[in-house]
Simulated scan of single mutants.
Amino acid sequence: MALVGLNLRPALSSLAPLLARVQLELGLSAAAIGVLTTLPVLCLGLFAPAAPWLSRRIGIERTLSIALLLLAVALLLRAGEGLWPLFAGTAMAGAAIGIAGTVLPVLVKRELPRGADLVTGFYTMALCLGGALGAGLSIPLAEWLGSWQRSLGSWALPALVALVCWWAMMPQPIPRPGHQRHGIMGTGLLRSPLAWQVTLLMGCQSSMAYIVFGWLPTLLQRRDIGEAEAGVLLGASVFVQLFSALGAPWLARLGRDERPALLLLLALIGAGFYCLLLGPPVLRWPGVVALGLGQGGSFSLALTLLVLRSSTPAIAGQLSAMTQGIGYCLAALGPLLVGVLLHFEASIGGIWALLTGLVVAAMLLALLAGRNRHLDIDEQGRFITRQQQPV
Rank of each mutant, 00 (worst) to 15 (best):
L330T: 06
L264K: 02
T304Q: 02
I174S: 14
T38R: 00
A11R: 02
L216A: 07
W144G: 00
L104R: 00
V282R: 13
S29D: 13
V106D: 03
E143W: 11
G287H: 00
G98L: 05
F87I: 03
L160E: 12
L264M: 11
P140R: 02
L337Q: 10
Q23D: 06
A245N: 09
R371C: 03
P140A: 08
L367E: 11
Q205I: 14
S29L: 05
L36N: 02
L129C: 12
G349R: 00
L336W: 09
A132F: 07
Y328F: 14
Q324E: 12
P260S: 03
L276C: 07
S207Y: 02
P171Y: 04
G27E: 02
K109F: 14
R191P: 04
L8Y: 10
P177L: 05
F213W: 06
I326T: 10
L246G: 13
Q180R: 14
M202L: 11
T218G: 12
L118H: 14
W155V: 04
G134L: 01
P52L: 03
G131W: 07
V282F: 13
L341P: 12
I211F: 08
L303R: 00
R57L: 09
C329W: 00
T37S: 12
G325E: 09
Q387E: 14
L264H: 00
F383A: 09
A245Q: 05
L291Q: 08
V282Y: 13
Q197I: 03
L18Q: 02
G339H: 05
L333E: 10
A16N: 01
P173K: 02
A230L: 08
L69D: 06
L355V: 10
R259T: 14
Q149A: 04
G235V: 03
S298M: 04
M208P: 13
Q318W: 09
W215T: 01
I58W: 12
L157P: 01
G350V: 15
W53Q: 03
L368N: 08
S147A: 06
F239I: 01
R253P: 08
L83E: 09
A159E: 04
N372H: 15
L145G: 05
R150K: 07
M208T: 06
T90Q: 03
A156P: 09
E345W: 04
Q180E: 14
